[in-house]
Design a protein around this nucleic acid. Structure first.
Length: 448
RNA sequence: GGAGGGAUGGCCGAGUGGCUUAAGGCGACGGUCUUGAAAACCGUUGUAGCCCUAUGGGUUACCGGGGGUUCGAAUCCCUCUCCCUCCGCCA
């Protein structure tokens, strides 16, 4: 969520930013609601002040012993001065009743305006960082680096096969049975296939733990407000699986529970940056892209992922993003798989990101670059939604500020599996196990 | 799923309709004293919003969330959530 005060003070700048994202954002409607809300607040607060004051005066005119008898049964026995007081008191009460009615009506209008305003604010995407190149869509994204040599048939000395052929022949990926049990876009990993995925998970976690990330095992089902915190809701409800009875939602990424684990908290600035790594399954309906990437295990409704999440101070978040990318790259380097880094232009930024880089691994069988990681700096956008703050020190009067949040895949499993299978395939259709994975595979050298 | 008990500031903990502007304690911060420290003593203390003549002043809301009663609610009523104790069920 953007800072409302910032929109109020820099409306033209915000509108331009939205234009560079190729997004229609209701900035004018927000500004109008903001004016209306503040005007209503001023009026209702005056009325409340009046009521508070007069109510206190009413209390003072009551004799101390009478204060606890609401019916004022003793009125008849009081002297004439007391009776006059009582009459005056009743007049004031009647007056305050009418003030109360006005307050009620104003409060209702304030609530209505705030709900409307908040609903609109939740649909506005993050502002892009000034460093992000302006561009319309993914075709204009920038390849910033290529690491390693993408291998082709010439290098292999034979025609490299796609993973669906390799996996099926080896009996380590079973597409038919996955579909039988769960429907389209599901598959099963069998034997060395399942073990290879498990090896990759353990390997990645160990590498990231070594880089200083604290491992977290989070829930896979979360509340609606948790998905609002990271920005998946309300805009992208159609991409989520959820249980209607309990209003619990299946996580599309570990980012959701891990970022929100500090929701509503004020963190100790001395403890920042906080680095977490989590392995989870992820669930996505992907109905928007039905028909795309239908072959193989590239895009399924369920996949595993190791994810890194960072919480840091505003002034360090860009440097932390660079570290995050390097930490994710380390996996590709250790696996000795060629990869490249892509910078997203404004038009291809995700809803919550201010800056975003993708890591793509080369897959010689499918003959394409596979997106295995997205590393994003969300700045204070998610922190504002999830209300995650920090204090720089314990000094008196220290102000709580919003943290900056970042996350990046410490790689998405199915696509790394594809890259491993296709890059390490041999002429006979067997797969050499990458050196760094052998200890995790019980010393297995070749999958055949 | 059933029965009972709870939720108050950074923490502990009082508070059954109006001197509550939330007592008291702890902690934290500042000061006095001291060669320095401790102790003692004095003072300060949260969050969010709005308004103004704006290094300051005013005001509203916040005692788990939401609603209600009342001139007035931490306090009374309804409801929801979460936690604790016990029972049942369960990988």
């Amino acid at each position: 969520m953007l800072d409302l005060a910032y929109i109020r003070e820099h409306p033209e700048e915000v509108k331009q930013a939205m234009a560079s994202l190729y997004v229609e954002a209701p900035i004018d409607a927000i500004l109008e609601l903001d004016v209306r809300r503040r005007s209503l607040l001023t009026q209702v607060e005056q009325l409340k002040q009046q009521r508070n004051q007069v109510s206190k005066e009413i209390g003072k005119t009551l004799a101390p012993h009478a204060r606890h008898t609401p019916a004022e049964s003793g009125v008849a026995r009081q002297a004439s001065a007391g009776v006059r007081d009582a009459a005056e008191r009743e007049a004031k009460k009647a007056e305050m009743r009418s003030v109360g009615d006005q307050i009620e009506s104003f409060d209702a209008q304030v609530r209505e305006t705030e709900t409307e305003l908040n609903d609109l604010m939740l649909t506005v995407p993050n502002l892009p960082d000034p460093s992000v190149p302006v561009g319309k869509d993914e075709t204009e994204n920038i390849v910033t680096r290529v690491v390693g040599e993408p291998q082709t048939a010439k290098d292999f000395g034979f025609e490299p096969k796609p993973h669906w052929d390799l996996g099926t022949a080896l009996g380590i990926i079973d597409f038919e049975r996955g579909v039988k049990v769960s429907g389209t876009r599901f598959y099963m990993l069998i034997g060395a296939g399942a073990r290879l995925q498990r090896a990759l998970i353990s390997f990645m976690l160990d590498v990231h733990i070594g880089q200083g990330y604290l491992e977290v095992y989070p829930p896979y089902l979360v509340k609606r407000e948790t998905l609002i915190g990271t920005g998946q809701l309300p805009k992208f409800a159609e991409n989520q699986y959820f249980d209607q009875v309990d209003d619990l939602w299946m996580i599309p990424t570990a980012e959701v529970p891990v970022t929100n684990m500090y929701a509503g908290e004020i963190l100790d600035g001395a403890k920042l940056p906080i680095n977490h790594v989590a392995y989870t399954a992820c669930f996505r309906r992907e109905q928007m892209s039905a028909g795309r990437d239908t072959r193989g295990i590239k895009r399924g409704h369920q996949f595993d992922k190791v994810e890194m999440v960072k919480f840091c101070t505003p002034e360090t978040s860009m440097a932390e993003l660079a570290k995050l990318i390097d930490n994710a790259e380390e996996i590709a380097r250790l696996l000795k798989i060629p990869y490249r880094i892509i910078q997203m232009v404004t038009g291809d930024l995700s809803f919550s990101a201010a800056v975003k880089y993708d890591i793509e691994m080369w897959a010689p069988g499918c003959n394409e670059w596979l997106e295995v990681s997205s590393c994003s700096n969300f700045k204070d956008f998610q922190a504002r939604r999830a209300n995650i703050k920090f204090k720089r020190n314990t000094q008196r009067g220290a102000r709580a500020e919003y943290v900056h949040t970042l996350n990046g895949s410490g790689l998405a499993l199915p696509r790394v599996m594809i890259a491993v299978l296709e890059n390490y395939q041999q002429a006979d259709g067997s797969i050499a196990v990458p050196e760094v994975l052998k200890p995790y595979m019980g010393g297995l050298e070749v999958i055949r």
